[in-house]
Design a protein around this nucleic acid. Sequence first.
DNA 1: GTCTATAACTGGATAGAC
DNA 2: GTCTATCCAGTTATAGAC
Lengths: 241, 241
Amino acid sequence: MPGAKSAARPAARQAKPLVSKRAEQSERTRARILDVAEDLLGQHGFYGTTIRQVAQLADVDTALLHYYFDSKQGLFDAVFLRRATIINSERLDALNKYEKKAGGNIALEGVIEAFLDPVLEWIAKGGKGWRNYFAILAQVNATPNWGTGVMVKYFDPVIHRLIGLVQKTLPDADPVDLYWAYHNLSGALTLTLGTTGRIDRLSNGLCRSDDVEALRPRMIVYAVAGFRAVCVPQPKKRKTR
Amino acid sequence: MPGAKSAARPAARQAKPLVSKRAEQSERTRARILDVAEDLLGQHGFYGTTIRQVAQLADVDTALLHYYFDSKQGLFDAVFLRRATIINSERLDALNKYEKKAGGNIALEGVIEAFLDPVLEWIAKGGKGWRNYFAILAQVNATPNWGTGVMVKYFDPVIHRLIGLVQKTLPDADPVDLYWAYHNLSGALTLTLGTTGRIDRLSNGLCRSDDVEALRPRMIVYAVAGFRAVCVPQPKKRKTR
DNA sequence: GTCTATAACTGGATAGAC
DNA sequence: GTCTATCCAGTTATAGAC
Protein backbone atom coordinates (compact mmCIF):
# COMPACT_ATOMS: atom_id res chain seq x y z
CA MET A 1 0.00 0.00 0.00
CA PRO A 2 2.00 2.95 -1.28
CA GLY A 3 1.53 6.34 0.25
CA ALA A 4 1.36 5.47 3.90
CA LYS A 5 4.33 6.93 5.70
CA SER A 6 6.42 9.93 4.74
CA ALA A 7 9.95 10.14 3.42
CA ALA A 8 12.92 10.56 5.70
CA ARG A 9 15.50 13.07 4.61
CA PRO A 10 18.40 12.69 6.97
CA ALA A 11 21.56 14.59 7.65
CA ALA A 12 22.20 15.46 4.00
CA ARG A 13 23.11 19.16 3.67
CA GLN A 14 23.41 20.60 7.13
CA ALA A 15 25.12 23.76 5.85
CA LYS A 16 28.75 23.06 6.50
CA PRO A 17 31.14 25.64 4.98
CA LEU A 18 29.22 26.93 1.99
CA VAL A 19 29.16 24.23 -0.60
CA SER A 20 30.66 21.13 0.89
CA LYS A 21 32.01 18.95 -1.89
CA ARG A 22 30.83 16.07 0.19
CA ALA A 23 27.24 17.22 0.42
CA GLU A 24 27.19 18.02 -3.26
CA GLN A 25 28.30 14.53 -4.14
CA SER A 26 25.73 13.16 -1.76
CA GLU A 27 22.99 15.16 -3.41
CA ARG A 28 23.98 13.77 -6.77
CA THR A 29 23.89 10.22 -5.47
CA ARG A 30 20.50 10.88 -4.00
CA ALA A 31 19.22 12.22 -7.28
CA ARG A 32 20.62 9.26 -9.17
CA ILE A 33 18.82 6.85 -6.89
CA LEU A 34 15.59 8.75 -7.37
CA ASP A 35 16.01 8.70 -11.14
CA VAL A 36 16.55 4.97 -11.23
CA ALA A 37 13.68 4.32 -8.85
CA GLU A 38 11.43 6.51 -10.95
CA ASP A 39 12.31 4.48 -13.99
CA LEU A 40 11.64 1.11 -12.41
CA LEU A 41 8.52 2.20 -10.56
CA GLY A 42 7.11 3.59 -13.78
CA GLN A 43 7.66 0.30 -15.53
CA HIS A 44 6.74 -2.22 -12.84
CA GLY A 45 4.83 -0.40 -10.13
CA PHE A 46 5.45 -0.42 -6.42
CA TYR A 47 5.36 -4.13 -5.71
CA GLY A 48 7.02 -5.02 -8.98
CA THR A 49 10.06 -2.96 -8.12
CA THR A 50 12.64 -4.18 -5.61
CA ILE A 51 15.08 -1.99 -3.80
CA ARG A 52 17.77 -4.42 -4.83
CA GLN A 53 17.10 -3.63 -8.48
CA VAL A 54 17.16 0.05 -7.71
CA ALA A 55 20.43 -0.26 -5.84
CA GLN A 56 22.05 -2.29 -8.56
CA LEU A 57 21.02 0.04 -11.36
CA ALA A 58 22.05 3.09 -9.36
CA ASP A 59 25.35 1.38 -8.63
CA VAL A 60 25.11 1.65 -4.87
CA ASP A 61 24.34 -0.76 -2.05
CA THR A 62 20.86 -1.40 -0.74
CA ALA A 63 22.01 -0.18 2.64
CA LEU A 64 22.49 3.23 1.15
CA LEU A 65 18.91 3.35 -0.01
CA HIS A 66 17.81 2.77 3.54
CA TYR A 67 20.22 5.40 4.73
CA TYR A 68 18.72 8.00 2.42
CA PHE A 69 15.09 7.00 2.32
CA ASP A 70 14.60 4.83 5.36
CA SER A 71 12.37 2.27 3.68
CA LYS A 72 11.03 1.21 0.34
CA GLN A 73 7.93 3.22 1.09
CA GLY A 74 10.07 6.22 1.90
CA LEU A 75 11.80 5.88 -1.44
CA PHE A 76 8.53 5.69 -3.28
CA ASP A 77 7.19 8.72 -1.46
CA ALA A 78 10.33 10.69 -2.23
CA VAL A 79 10.03 9.83 -5.91
CA PHE A 80 6.39 10.77 -5.92
CA LEU A 81 6.93 14.02 -4.08
CA ARG A 82 9.87 15.33 -6.05
CA ARG A 83 7.90 16.23 -9.14
CA ALA A 84 4.46 16.51 -7.54
CA THR A 85 5.39 19.84 -6.03
CA ILE A 86 6.76 21.12 -9.33
CA ILE A 87 3.97 20.08 -11.64
CA ASN A 88 1.17 21.21 -9.37
CA SER A 89 2.54 24.62 -8.52
CA GLU A 90 3.01 25.11 -12.26
CA ARG A 91 -0.56 24.14 -12.96
CA LEU A 92 -1.83 26.41 -10.24
CA ASP A 93 0.25 29.26 -11.62
CA ALA A 94 -1.02 28.63 -15.15
CA LEU A 95 -4.62 28.73 -13.99
CA ASN A 96 -4.08 31.87 -11.94
CA LYS A 97 -2.25 33.55 -14.76
CA TYR A 98 -4.95 32.72 -17.23
CA GLU A 99 -7.67 34.04 -14.97
CA LYS A 100 -5.85 37.31 -14.53
CA LYS A 101 -5.13 37.62 -18.24
CA ALA A 102 -8.67 36.80 -19.32
CA GLY A 103 -10.19 39.23 -16.88
CA GLY A 104 -13.88 39.65 -17.57
CA ASN A 105 -14.28 37.28 -20.49
CA ILE A 106 -12.84 34.05 -19.25
CA ALA A 107 -13.28 31.18 -21.72
CA LEU A 108 -13.69 27.46 -21.16
CA GLU A 109 -11.07 26.63 -23.74
CA GLY A 110 -8.54 28.85 -22.04
CA VAL A 111 -9.14 27.23 -18.68
CA ILE A 112 -8.75 23.72 -20.04
CA GLU A 113 -5.58 24.70 -21.84
CA ALA A 114 -4.09 26.22 -18.73
CA PHE A 115 -4.89 23.04 -16.84
CA LEU A 116 -3.42 20.68 -19.41
CA ASP A 117 -0.49 22.55 -20.84
CA PRO A 118 2.05 22.25 -18.03
CA VAL A 119 1.64 18.48 -18.05
CA LEU A 120 1.65 18.16 -21.81
CA GLU A 121 4.75 20.27 -22.08
CA TRP A 122 6.61 18.08 -19.65
CA ILE A 123 5.53 15.01 -21.57
CA ALA A 124 6.79 16.56 -24.77
CA LYS A 125 10.01 18.09 -23.52
CA GLY A 126 10.69 16.64 -20.09
CA GLY A 127 12.58 13.63 -21.30
CA LYS A 128 12.70 10.21 -19.74
CA GLY A 129 12.48 11.44 -16.16
CA TRP A 130 9.14 13.11 -16.53
CA ARG A 131 7.71 10.38 -18.69
CA ASN A 132 8.60 7.81 -16.06
CA TYR A 133 7.06 9.98 -13.41
CA PHE A 134 3.81 10.33 -15.29
CA ALA A 135 3.73 6.60 -15.85
CA ILE A 136 3.83 6.18 -12.09
CA LEU A 137 1.07 8.73 -11.73
CA ALA A 138 -1.06 6.87 -14.24
CA GLN A 139 -0.68 3.67 -12.26
CA VAL A 140 -1.43 5.35 -8.97
CA ASN A 141 -4.55 6.81 -10.50
CA ALA A 142 -5.73 3.34 -11.44
CA THR A 143 -5.11 1.92 -7.99
CA PRO A 144 -8.01 1.56 -5.55
CA ASN A 145 -8.02 3.39 -2.25
CA TRP A 146 -5.99 6.32 -3.37
CA GLY A 147 -6.65 9.76 -2.16
CA THR A 148 -4.53 9.92 0.89
CA GLY A 149 -1.34 11.78 1.50
CA VAL A 150 0.46 13.33 -1.42
CA MET A 151 -2.47 13.04 -3.77
CA VAL A 152 -4.78 15.08 -1.59
CA LYS A 153 -2.20 17.65 -0.62
CA TYR A 154 -0.72 18.44 -4.02
CA PHE A 155 -3.14 17.36 -6.70
CA ASP A 156 -6.55 18.10 -5.28
CA PRO A 157 -6.14 21.87 -4.94
CA VAL A 158 -5.35 22.16 -8.64
CA ILE A 159 -8.47 20.23 -9.54
CA HIS A 160 -10.66 22.32 -7.30
CA ARG A 161 -9.17 25.43 -8.83
CA LEU A 162 -9.90 24.06 -12.31
CA ILE A 163 -13.49 23.30 -11.44
CA GLY A 164 -13.90 26.70 -9.86
CA LEU A 165 -12.74 28.41 -13.04
CA VAL A 166 -14.83 26.22 -15.30
CA GLN A 167 -17.79 27.18 -13.18
CA LYS A 168 -17.11 30.82 -13.99
CA THR A 169 -17.41 30.08 -17.68
CA LEU A 170 -20.54 27.97 -17.19
CA PRO A 171 -22.35 29.80 -14.40
CA ASP A 172 -25.52 27.71 -14.56
CA ALA A 173 -23.72 24.38 -14.33
CA ASP A 174 -24.80 21.88 -11.72
CA PRO A 175 -21.78 20.92 -9.57
CA VAL A 176 -22.61 17.25 -10.07
CA ASP A 177 -22.32 17.73 -13.81
CA LEU A 178 -19.06 19.57 -13.35
CA TYR A 179 -17.48 16.77 -11.36
CA TRP A 180 -18.59 14.11 -13.80
CA ALA A 181 -17.32 16.14 -16.71
CA TYR A 182 -14.02 16.46 -14.92
CA HIS A 183 -14.05 12.71 -14.40
CA ASN A 184 -14.07 12.28 -18.18
CA LEU A 185 -11.24 14.72 -18.65
CA SER A 186 -9.22 13.18 -15.87
CA GLY A 187 -9.50 9.73 -17.38
CA ALA A 188 -8.32 10.95 -20.74
CA LEU A 189 -5.40 12.76 -19.15
CA THR A 190 -4.44 9.75 -17.08
CA LEU A 191 -4.39 7.52 -20.12
CA THR A 192 -2.27 10.10 -21.88
CA LEU A 193 0.16 10.23 -18.98
CA GLY A 194 0.75 6.51 -19.25
CA THR A 195 2.08 6.73 -22.81
CA THR A 196 1.59 2.99 -22.91
CA GLY A 197 1.79 2.76 -26.67
CA ARG A 198 -1.69 1.32 -26.82
CA ILE A 199 -3.01 3.77 -29.41
CA ASP A 200 0.07 3.16 -31.52
CA ARG A 201 -0.82 -0.47 -31.97
CA LEU A 202 -4.55 0.11 -32.23
CA SER A 203 -4.12 2.67 -34.97
CA ASN A 204 -1.41 0.62 -36.63
CA GLY A 205 1.09 3.40 -36.24
CA LEU A 206 -1.19 6.21 -37.40
CA CYS A 207 -1.02 7.76 -33.93
CA ARG A 208 1.78 7.72 -31.39
CA SER A 209 0.94 8.00 -27.73
CA ASP A 210 3.81 10.41 -27.11
CA ASP A 211 2.93 12.70 -30.00
CA VAL A 212 1.85 15.71 -27.99
CA GLU A 213 1.60 17.87 -31.13
CA ALA A 214 -1.18 15.67 -32.44
CA LEU A 215 -2.76 14.86 -29.12
CA ARG A 216 -3.04 18.29 -27.55
CA PRO A 217 -5.47 20.10 -29.86
CA ARG A 218 -7.75 17.08 -30.03
CA MET A 219 -7.76 16.61 -26.30
CA ILE A 220 -8.70 20.23 -25.75
CA VAL A 221 -11.41 20.29 -28.39
CA TYR A 222 -12.85 17.04 -27.08
CA ALA A 223 -12.90 18.25 -23.48
CA VAL A 224 -14.33 21.67 -24.24
CA ALA A 225 -17.18 20.16 -26.22
CA GLY A 226 -17.73 17.53 -23.55
CA PHE A 227 -17.86 19.95 -20.64
CA ARG A 228 -20.26 22.17 -22.51
CA ALA A 229 -22.55 19.34 -23.50
CA VAL A 230 -22.69 17.92 -19.99
CA CYS A 231 -22.88 21.15 -18.04
CA VAL A 232 -25.04 23.44 -20.13
CA PRO A 233 -28.64 22.65 -19.29
CA GLN A 234 -30.40 21.91 -22.55
CA PRO A 235 -34.17 22.13 -22.19
CA LYS A 236 -34.74 19.06 -24.35
CA LYS A 237 -32.39 17.02 -22.23
CA ARG A 238 -33.23 14.47 -19.59
CA LYS A 239 -33.31 15.44 -15.97
CA THR A 240 -32.54 11.95 -14.63
CA ARG A 241 -31.05 13.02 -11.38
CA MET B 1 5.35 -9.28 -16.44
CA PRO B 2 1.74 -10.46 -16.61
CA GLY B 3 0.37 -11.95 -19.76
CA ALA B 4 3.28 -14.07 -20.85
CA LYS B 5 2.33 -17.71 -20.81
CA SER B 6 -1.11 -19.23 -21.08
CA ALA B 7 -3.23 -20.97 -18.47
CA ALA B 8 -3.11 -24.70 -17.97
CA ARG B 9 -6.41 -26.42 -17.54
CA PRO B 10 -5.62 -29.97 -16.54
CA ALA B 11 -7.59 -33.12 -16.03
CA ALA B 12 -10.68 -31.36 -14.69
CA ARG B 13 -13.79 -32.66 -16.50
CA GLN B 14 -12.79 -35.50 -18.74
CA ALA B 15 -16.40 -36.63 -19.24
CA LYS B 16 -16.68 -39.52 -16.80
CA PRO B 17 -20.24 -40.82 -16.41
CA LEU B 18 -22.35 -37.78 -17.17
CA VAL B 19 -22.05 -35.40 -14.31
CA SER B 20 -19.42 -36.71 -11.98
CA LYS B 21 -20.02 -35.35 -8.52
CA ARG B 22 -16.30 -35.17 -8.24
CA ALA B 23 -15.81 -32.98 -11.29
CA GLU B 24 -18.64 -30.74 -10.21
CA GLN B 25 -17.03 -30.16 -6.85
CA SER B 26 -13.75 -29.54 -8.59
CA GLU B 27 -15.30 -26.94 -10.82
CA ARG B 28 -16.68 -25.15 -7.80
CA THR B 29 -13.29 -25.11 -6.11
CA ARG B 30 -11.76 -23.78 -9.27
CA ALA B 31 -14.31 -21.01 -9.48
CA ARG B 32 -13.79 -20.11 -5.83
CA ILE B 33 -10.06 -19.77 -6.37
CA LEU B 34 -10.66 -17.54 -9.37
CA ASP B 35 -13.06 -15.38 -7.39
CA VAL B 36 -10.60 -14.87 -4.59
CA ALA B 37 -7.74 -14.21 -6.97
CA GLU B 38 -9.86 -11.70 -8.83
CA ASP B 39 -10.52 -9.88 -5.61
CA LEU B 40 -6.90 -9.68 -4.53
CA LEU B 41 -5.54 -8.89 -7.97
CA GLY B 42 -8.04 -6.08 -8.30
CA GLN B 43 -6.90 -4.58 -5.03
CA HIS B 44 -3.15 -5.12 -5.16
CA GLY B 45 -2.20 -5.94 -8.72
CA PHE B 46 -0.11 -8.80 -9.99
CA TYR B 47 3.03 -8.39 -7.92
CA GLY B 48 1.13 -7.23 -4.85
CA THR B 49 -0.85 -10.44 -4.73
CA THR B 50 0.70 -13.69 -3.50
CA ILE B 51 -0.65 -17.13 -4.23
CA ARG B 52 -0.42 -17.83 -0.53
CA GLN B 53 -2.95 -15.12 0.16
CA VAL B 54 -5.16 -16.51 -2.55
CA ALA B 55 -4.87 -20.02 -1.20
CA GLN B 56 -5.58 -18.96 2.34
CA LEU B 57 -8.63 -16.89 1.45
CA ALA B 58 -9.95 -19.63 -0.82
CA ASP B 59 -9.36 -22.13 1.98
CA VAL B 60 -7.18 -24.46 -0.02
CA ASP B 61 -3.48 -25.19 -0.16
CA THR B 62 -1.07 -23.42 -2.46
CA ALA B 63 -0.24 -26.74 -4.06
CA LEU B 64 -3.78 -26.89 -5.33
CA LEU B 65 -3.40 -23.59 -7.08
CA HIS B 66 -0.45 -24.99 -8.94
CA TYR B 67 -2.42 -28.09 -9.73
CA TYR B 68 -5.20 -26.07 -11.32
CA PHE B 69 -3.35 -23.15 -12.83
CA ASP B 70 0.23 -24.31 -13.08
CA SER B 71 1.80 -21.01 -11.99
CA LYS B 72 0.99 -17.61 -10.64
CA GLN B 73 1.00 -16.32 -14.18
CA GLY B 74 -1.37 -19.08 -15.21
CA LEU B 75 -3.74 -18.06 -12.44
CA PHE B 76 -3.63 -14.44 -13.49
CA ASP B 77 -4.28 -15.35 -17.10
CA ALA B 78 -7.20 -17.54 -16.15
CA VAL B 79 -8.72 -14.72 -14.13
CA PHE B 80 -8.21 -12.30 -16.94
CA LEU B 81 -9.61 -14.61 -19.58
CA ARG B 82 -12.72 -15.76 -17.75
CA ARG B 83 -14.63 -12.52 -18.15
CA ALA B 84 -12.75 -11.13 -21.15
CA THR B 85 -14.57 -13.53 -23.43
CA ILE B 86 -17.94 -12.67 -21.92
CA ILE B 87 -17.69 -8.91 -21.92
CA ASN B 88 -16.24 -8.60 -25.38
CA SER B 89 -18.65 -10.90 -27.14
CA GLU B 90 -21.42 -8.95 -25.46
CA ARG B 91 -20.02 -5.68 -26.68
CA LEU B 92 -19.62 -7.02 -30.19
CA ASP B 93 -23.19 -8.28 -30.11
CA ALA B 94 -24.46 -4.94 -28.87
CA LEU B 95 -22.70 -3.08 -31.67
CA ASN B 96 -23.93 -5.52 -34.31
CA LYS B 97 -27.44 -5.40 -32.98
CA TYR B 98 -27.47 -1.64 -32.96
CA GLU B 99 -26.22 -1.44 -36.52
CA LYS B 100 -28.91 -3.77 -37.71
CA LYS B 101 -31.61 -1.96 -35.77
CA ALA B 102 -30.56 1.50 -36.91
CA GLY B 103 -30.37 0.46 -40.53
CA GLY B 104 -29.91 3.50 -42.74
CA ASN B 105 -29.85 6.22 -40.11
CA ILE B 106 -27.18 5.09 -37.73
CA ALA B 107 -26.46 7.68 -35.00
CA LEU B 108 -23.29 8.45 -33.09
CA GLU B 109 -25.08 8.41 -29.79
CA GLY B 110 -26.47 4.95 -30.45
CA VAL B 111 -23.05 3.59 -31.32
CA ILE B 112 -21.44 4.98 -28.18
CA GLU B 113 -24.27 3.62 -26.06
CA ALA B 114 -23.94 0.17 -27.55
CA PHE B 115 -20.22 0.24 -26.86
CA LEU B 116 -20.52 1.38 -23.26
CA ASP B 117 -23.69 -0.25 -22.02
CA PRO B 118 -22.57 -3.85 -21.57
CA VAL B 119 -19.70 -2.69 -19.37
CA LEU B 120 -21.77 -0.18 -17.44
CA GLU B 121 -24.45 -2.75 -16.81
CA TRP B 122 -21.97 -5.19 -15.35
CA ILE B 123 -20.57 -2.46 -13.14
CA ALA B 124 -24.05 -1.64 -11.93
CA LYS B 125 -25.43 -5.14 -11.53
CA GLY B 126 -22.52 -7.54 -11.74
CA GLY B 127 -21.68 -7.43 -8.08
CA LYS B 128 -18.28 -7.73 -6.51
CA GLY B 129 -16.91 -10.18 -9.06
CA TRP B 130 -17.27 -7.90 -12.03
CA ARG B 131 -16.16 -4.84 -10.13
CA ASN B 132 -12.99 -6.61 -9.12
CA TYR B 133 -12.44 -7.71 -12.65
CA PHE B 134 -12.80 -4.23 -14.02
CA ALA B 135 -10.40 -2.94 -11.40
CA ILE B 136 -7.82 -5.37 -12.76
CA LEU B 137 -8.58 -4.19 -16.26
CA ALA B 138 -8.08 -0.58 -15.22
CA GLN B 139 -4.67 -1.42 -13.80
CA VAL B 140 -3.64 -3.40 -16.83
CA ASN B 141 -4.63 -0.47 -19.00
CA ALA B 142 -2.32 1.79 -17.03
CA THR B 143 0.63 -0.56 -17.28
CA PRO B 144 3.29 0.03 -19.90
CA ASN B 145 3.95 -2.53 -22.61
CA TRP B 146 0.51 -3.95 -22.71
CA GLY B 147 -1.13 -4.98 -25.86
CA THR B 148 -0.02 -8.54 -26.14
CA GLY B 149 -2.01 -11.70 -25.75
CA VAL B 150 -5.46 -11.46 -24.31
CA MET B 151 -5.75 -7.73 -24.85
CA VAL B 152 -5.18 -7.93 -28.56
CA LYS B 153 -7.25 -11.02 -29.11
CA TYR B 154 -10.36 -10.08 -27.18
CA PHE B 155 -10.45 -6.32 -26.72
CA ASP B 156 -9.05 -4.94 -29.94
CA PRO B 157 -11.72 -6.32 -32.29
CA VAL B 158 -14.43 -4.54 -30.32
CA ILE B 159 -12.58 -1.25 -30.55
CA HIS B 160 -12.06 -1.57 -34.27
CA ARG B 161 -15.72 -2.37 -34.66
CA LEU B 162 -16.60 0.72 -32.63
CA ILE B 163 -14.40 2.95 -34.73
CA GLY B 164 -15.79 1.45 -37.91
CA LEU B 165 -19.33 2.27 -36.85
CA VAL B 166 -18.45 5.76 -35.66
CA GLN B 167 -16.94 6.32 -39.07
CA LYS B 168 -20.29 5.52 -40.64
CA THR B 169 -21.89 8.31 -38.63
CA LEU B 170 -19.08 10.75 -39.41
CA PRO B 171 -18.13 9.85 -42.97
CA ASP B 172 -15.74 12.73 -43.47
CA ALA B 173 -13.74 12.03 -40.34
CA ASP B 174 -9.99 11.68 -40.57
CA PRO B 175 -8.91 8.32 -39.10
CA VAL B 176 -6.29 10.07 -37.00
CA ASP B 177 -9.01 12.18 -35.42
CA LEU B 178 -11.10 9.08 -34.84
CA TYR B 179 -8.35 7.28 -32.98
CA TRP B 180 -7.54 10.27 -30.81
CA ALA B 181 -11.19 10.77 -30.03
CA TYR B 182 -11.37 7.13 -29.03
CA HIS B 183 -8.32 7.68 -26.86
CA ASN B 184 -10.29 10.24 -24.87
CA LEU B 185 -13.26 7.93 -24.51
CA SER B 186 -11.07 5.00 -23.56
CA GLY B 187 -9.39 6.95 -20.80
CA ALA B 188 -12.71 7.99 -19.33
CA LEU B 189 -13.99 4.44 -19.46
CA THR B 190 -10.84 3.07 -17.86
CA LEU B 191 -11.08 5.51 -15.01
CA THR B 192 -14.71 4.54 -14.58
CA LEU B 193 -13.80 0.85 -14.49
CA GLY B 194 -11.46 1.43 -11.61
CA THR B 195 -14.19 2.72 -9.32
CA THR B 196 -11.39 3.99 -7.15
CA GLY B 197 -13.57 6.34 -5.14
CA ARG B 198 -11.51 9.30 -6.27
CA ILE B 199 -14.45 11.37 -7.47
CA ASP B 200 -16.27 10.63 -4.23
CA ARG B 201 -13.63 12.40 -2.22
CA LEU B 202 -13.02 15.14 -4.74
CA SER B 203 -16.68 16.03 -4.87
CA ASN B 204 -17.05 15.60 -1.15
CA GLY B 205 -19.63 12.89 -1.60
CA LEU B 206 -21.64 14.68 -4.29
CA CYS B 207 -20.72 11.96 -6.76
CA ARG B 208 -20.04 8.28 -6.21
CA SER B 209 -17.75 6.45 -8.58
CA ASP B 210 -20.04 3.41 -8.67
CA ASP B 211 -23.18 5.42 -9.37
CA VAL B 212 -23.81 4.23 -12.91
CA GLU B 213 -27.21 5.96 -13.01
CA ALA B 214 -25.51 9.33 -12.67
CA LEU B 215 -22.41 8.50 -14.63
CA ARG B 216 -23.87 6.90 -17.74
CA PRO B 217 -25.82 9.75 -19.32
CA ARG B 218 -23.02 12.22 -18.70
CA MET B 219 -20.39 9.93 -20.09
CA ILE B 220 -22.40 9.42 -23.26
CA VAL B 221 -23.20 13.10 -23.75
CA TYR B 222 -19.59 14.03 -23.12
CA ALA B 223 -18.25 11.46 -25.58
CA VAL B 224 -20.74 12.22 -28.33
CA ALA B 225 -19.95 15.93 -28.17
CA GLY B 226 -16.24 15.19 -28.02
CA PHE B 227 -16.19 12.85 -31.00
CA ARG B 228 -18.19 15.32 -33.05
CA ALA B 229 -16.01 18.27 -32.15
CA VAL B 230 -12.80 16.42 -32.93
CA CYS B 231 -13.91 14.56 -36.04
CA VAL B 232 -16.17 16.96 -37.88
CA PRO B 233 -13.95 19.23 -39.92
CA GLN B 234 -14.84 22.76 -39.04
CA PRO B 235 -13.60 25.22 -41.64
CA LYS B 236 -12.47 27.73 -39.03
CA LYS B 237 -10.44 25.07 -37.26
CA ARG B 238 -6.69 24.43 -37.35
CA LYS B 239 -5.24 21.87 -39.66
CA THR B 240 -2.11 21.22 -37.60
CA ARG B 241 -1.34 17.81 -38.91
C1' DG C 1 -8.07 -34.03 -6.09
C1' DT C 2 -6.10 -32.54 -1.93
C1' DC C 3 -2.64 -31.85 1.54
C1' DT C 4 2.17 -32.24 4.03
C1' DA C 5 6.63 -31.04 3.80
C1' DT C 6 10.18 -28.78 2.08
C1' DA C 7 13.29 -27.11 -1.44
C1' DA C 8 15.30 -23.06 -3.43
C1' DC C 9 15.23 -18.56 -3.58
C1' DT C 10 14.21 -13.38 -3.11
C1' DG C 11 12.31 -9.81 -0.40
C1' DG C 12 13.17 -5.68 2.90
C1' DA C 13 15.85 -4.37 6.53
C1' DT C 14 19.83 -3.61 9.94
C1' DA C 15 24.24 -3.79 12.79
C1' DG C 16 28.60 -2.48 12.48
C1' DA C 17 33.11 -1.80 10.15
C1' DC C 18 35.59 1.67 7.48
C1' DG D 1 28.42 8.49 3.56
C1' DT D 2 29.28 4.03 1.94
C1' DC D 3 29.82 -0.91 1.95
C1' DT D 4 30.11 -5.90 4.09
C1' DA D 5 27.78 -9.29 6.05
C1' DT D 6 23.82 -11.17 7.59
C1' DC D 7 19.08 -11.92 9.37
C1' DC D 8 14.84 -13.88 8.56
C1' DA D 9 10.21 -13.54 6.92
C1' DG D 10 7.94 -14.50 2.98
C1' DT D 11 8.01 -16.06 -2.06
C1' DT D 12 6.99 -19.55 -5.87
C1' DA D 13 7.13 -24.07 -6.78
C1' DT D 14 7.49 -29.28 -6.44
C1' DA D 15 7.90 -34.20 -4.85
C1' DG D 16 5.31 -37.45 -2.83
C1' DA D 17 1.88 -39.31 0.63
C1' DC D 18 -3.10 -40.14 1.08
